[in-house]
Amino acid sequence: MAEREATMPLVSAPGGAGRAFMATLSRDLRLACRRRGEVLNPLVFYALVITLFPIGISPDPTLLSVVAPGLLWVAALLAALLSLDSLFRGDFEDGTLEQLALAPQPLYLQALAKVCVHWLLTGLPLSLMAPVLGALLALPAGSYAVLSLSLLLGSASLSLIGAIGAALTVGLARGGVLISLLILPLYIPVLVFGTGAVEAAAALESAAPQLSILGALLAISLIVAPPAIAASLRISING
Rank of each mutant, 00 (worst) to 15 (best):
V74E: 06
K114E: 13
G162V: 06
A145G: 12
I164D: 05
L133H: 02
Y46Q: 02
R174V: 12
G154V: 04
L152Y: 06
A79M: 07
G171H: 09
G37A: 10
P140A: 07
L48R: 12
V117M: 07
P54T: 09
R89K: 15
A138P: 01
D60H: 12
E98W: 11
T62I: 12
L152F: 12
F45A: 05
S159G: 09
M129G: 03
V49I: 13
L78S: 08
L147M: 07
L109A: 09
I57F: 15
V115M: 07
L172V: 14
T62P: 02
L137A: 03
A166E: 04
V170P: 00
H118F: 10
Y108T: 09
L126Y: 00
S148D: 03
A141V: 15
L107W: 00
P104L: 06
G56C: 10
E98G: 14
G37N: 08
L121N: 01
L77T: 12
V177W: 13
S148N: 04
L77A: 14
P106N: 08
G95C: 07
S157T: 15
L64S: 00
P59R: 14
R174P: 03
E98S: 15
F92W: 10
P54G: 07
A145L: 15
L124F: 12
S150F: 00
L52M: 12
A166T: 10
L168N: 06
W119E: 03
L178A: 11
E98P: 04
I50A: 04
